[in-house]
């Protein structure tokens, strides 16, 4: 349909960035993973006898506990980075603020994921 675009529109070069499908699919794939993982995650934590150091350590130190934690937090942090990116793109039009928030979103997600990963592995090892 490019023939219908005005010369000004073509010169500005705005429009599809041609990378949206990947984002869309990644959001859905991580959503499907979370539909399975979140119930397991919630069930595991709800069944803790209490939130004491010993009980919490014992949960994360168990293979099932460590695996569910690793899988859930990996899928969740990935999914929420994609989700918040859409929210930022929807509501923040100012280019510098938008780019800044998108960077912060990515850095927070990466930092959270590595912190969770490291913590779980330290406890489970």
């Amino acid at each position: 349909m490019s023939g219908l675009r005005t010369p000004l529109s073509r010169a500005k070069g705005l429009g599809s960035a041609r990378t949206g499908s990947g984002h869309f699919i990644a959001q859905r794939v991580s959503a499907v993973a979370l539909v399975i993982l979140i119930p397991a995650f919630v069930w595991m934590i709800a069944r803790l006898p209490d939130l004491s150091y010993e009980a919490a350590r014992a949960l994360i130190a168990s293979p099932a506990g460590a695996l569910v934690m690793l899988l859930t937090l990996t899928a969740a942090i990935y999914h929420m980075r994609l989700g918040l990116q859409v929210v930022i793109e929807d509501y923040i039009p100012a280019p510098v603020t938008r780019a800044g928030l998108l960077i912060v979103n990515t850095l927070i997600a990466a930092g959270l994921w590595l912190t969770a990963l490291y913590s779980i592995l330290v406890i489970a090892a």
């Binding site: 994360i60 969740a76 989700g83 929210v87 969770a116 330290v122």
Partner: peptide, 28 residues
């Protein structure tokens, strides 16, 4: 979705405190 983002930050902080040892976890 945005509230869950904050929740994930808290869960990660909880895990980090748990990994840091009984003294840090004692605060919780």
């Amino acid at each position: 979705g945005m509230a869950n983002y904050i929740g994930a930050v808290l869960i990660t902080a909880w895990l980090a405190a748990l990994a840091a040892g009984p003294e840090t976890y004692g605060v919780i």
